[in-house]
Design a protein around this nucleic acid. Sequence first.
DNA 1: TTCTACATTATAATAGTTCTAAACTGTTGA
DNA 2: TCAACAGTTTAGAACTATTATAATGTAGAA
Lengths: 139, 139
Amino acid sequence: MLNNSQYIEKLRSSGLRPTKQRIKICEVLFNTQKTFHFTINELVKRISKSTNDKISLATVYNTVHAFKNKGYLKEIPINSDQSYFDTNTSHHHHFYDETQKDLIDIDDADVEPVKINTRIPGKKIKSVEVLVKVEDDKS
Amino acid sequence: MLNNSQYIEKLRSSGLRPTKQRIKICEVLFNTQKTFHFTINELVKRISKSTNDKISLATVYNTVHAFKNKGYLKEIPINSDQSYFDTNTSHHHHFYDETQKDLIDIDDADVEPVKINTRIPGKKIKSVEVLVKVEDDKS
DNA sequence: TTCTACATTATAATAGTTCTAAACTGTTGA
DNA sequence: TCAACAGTTTAGAACTATTATAATGTAGAA
Ligand SMILES: [Mn+2]
Ligand SMILES: [Mn+2]
Ligand SMILES: [Zn+2]
Ligand SMILES: [Zn+2]
């Protein structure tokens, strides 16, 4: 929940020029009470609802990737035909509702730390993500 | 490590006609000492190395999906441009080497059971998968 | 203000996957 | 035994998410 000049500062300080497209996308992504998950298509819809100036699809892709690289977004691995992104960049895991194709955060307090008692020599761990797939309980 | 007539029986008993294409794909997938991970493209290459009769790409897709639905294969959720499949259908987790784009099994004994202390009402858990992303350790 | 590197854009290209519809084949049961 | 049928294979087209291209525009420095 920042204002525009704060987004401008944030962008500048991470080496991204604060263009009006990027500022608008910041607003759509980060001017919310709650974090959320989205696909590029869903983001494009949100953007067009909140502005009259259209932002090209290529710019949305470019910006999402730039933000991901800067650590402002995370990409969630769900094997699907499209990428899912998350505005919640803190460490947490997910439910994936296969019936409704919906990603839901799992509060980190509700997951015991995942202990992996093996390593790969010469490799360092970048992330440990748990994906809990759920479906409608018809029993 | 079954022989052809055992694959025929396996296919028949799961309601799949034992065509020569499916039997060949069974051989490529299941006639190995170790289980492995593959993409469709890699599977196509393995198939063409092991037979002169060519199997169409559509059939490979059809068969992989049929086998997945019957539980003979698992699809591994890695956010990537292509689907990864696993001939190891037992419960286990993975390292994903982002440098080499390589999936590696984690022995289930090396992972403490993942405890999720929350549920979604009306939904039942289908799977709990841990993906540990690793990269080259340059430090 | 001018310059330049960075950013946006429309559009084409790419690539994994699914669809289509015609030809083929395994199985059944008369 | 073999006709009939449902299931399967196939080549190629279609689809769709994503990336590349290259021309135009713009933020920020000097
Ligand atoms: Mn998929
Ligand atoms: Mn991706
Ligand atoms: Zn999340
Ligand atoms: Zn595996």
